[in-house]
């Protein structure tokens, strides 16, 4: 029971991170009908910026954790958003209206380029980071096993909940959110009503990248290491999460992320850590067999 509870906490934490990345996949898919294969790399860049910023602040002698965290979040979100914007400008916009395969290939090219670019710049070895937030709560102690909720896990879960609330409100209530949904449903009509479609698509990439940057900061603090390959691994999981939840559905992305996080945590705890990915992808296959549009996705056949 105690062991189960601990895995639940770990799984939710992991799920929050996957969910934040998955939102970027699903938003971009919603608006341009395309998987942004470079999104995982954008997240990885966010994590690298976080490590660099934390290290720089450490050297500069900033020891007050909330301040350091705020600065790192700001820096990581700003620069990563700029990368997201650039990816759209370079790999997608010139190919708007081209056959569907073309932007897909250019996105894969972008992804490979960004991996190698970071590897060249930062080296192939893992970058470590000293723990920024230590300690935690002991929730339970029984049968020689203690259930821990670390402060960093608290931070990850709380920050994710707040971000998702803000993000959901943004999509539902603000003019930008409405414009995004309008572009998703009928791009030509949105333009006829005065929406700058290109700008709206750019902002979608920027928001997706900003969320991925927050996930990058979280991962850096949680695991304390990053390398140029984490974008591929986490990207694949988050993409799986987005498809599992129903690609194009924002609540679906969060639910998918949570499920993948939980499956991974429990599978590695009770079965084998080597095969946790097999478990995650098996769930995906199973769900897609019975619900091809994902858990919360809308079936493709809709008359517009």
């Amino acid at each position: 029971m105690e062991y189960f509870l601990q895995q639940l906490i770990n799984g939710v934490t992991l799920g929050a991170i996957y969910g934040l990345i998955a939102l970027g996949y699903t938003m971009v898919y919603g608006i341009i009908g395309m998987i942004n294969f470079a999104h995982g790399e954008v997240y990885m860049i966010g994590a690298f910026i976080a490590v660099t910023a934390f290290t720089a602040l450490g050297v500069a002698g900033v020891t007050f954790v909330p301040l350091a965290l705020a600065v790192v979040l700001l820096v990581a979100v700003t620069f990563t958003a700029a990368y997201g914007w650039t990816v759209e400008r370079v790999a997608y916009r010139p190919l708007r209206g081209a056959p569907r395969l073309a932007p897909l290939i250019s996105a894969i090219g972008m992804s490979i380029f960004l991996q190698n670019y970071v590897q060249l710049l930062q080296g192939a070895r893992v970058k470590p980071l000293a723990p920024v937030i230590r300690g935690g709560f002991e929730l339970l102690h029984a049968n020689q096993f203690s259930v821990q909720l670390s402060y960093i896990q608290c931070f990850i879960i709380l920050a994710t909940v707040v971000l998702i609330a803000v993000f959901t409100l943004m999509i539902a209530r603000t003019p930008l959110g409405r414009a995004q949904r309008a572009c998703e449903q009928d791009r030509t009509m949105a333009a006829l009503l005065g929406v700058d479609v290109d700008r709206t698509i750019s902002l979608t990439f920027v928001i997706g990248a900003a969320l991925a940057a927050v996930a990058g900061v979280m991962v850096t603090m949680y695991y304390g290491v990053v390398d140029f390959f984490i974008g591929f691994q986490a990207g694949l999981k988050a993409f799986t999460a987005a498809v599992l939840g129903g690609i194009g559905s924002l609540p679906g992305a969060m639910l998918g992320g949570l499920l993948i996080g939980l499956v991974e945590a429990f599978y590695s705890a009770y079965f084998s850590i080597e095969y946790k990915d097999v478990a995650a992808f098996s769930i995906l296959v199973l769900v897609l067999v019975f619900r091809p549009s994902g858990l919360l996705g809308r079936p493709e056949v809709e008359k517009v």
Partner: peptide, 20 residues
């Protein structure tokens, strides 16, 4: 007509105001 199918009537009207 090109009504946004998954937006409410109110939201469709709000979209109309975007150009003004």
């Amino acid at each position: 007509r090109r009504i946004f199918p998954r937006m409410t009537v109110l939201e469709n009207l709000q979209m109309g105001a975007a150009a003004g």
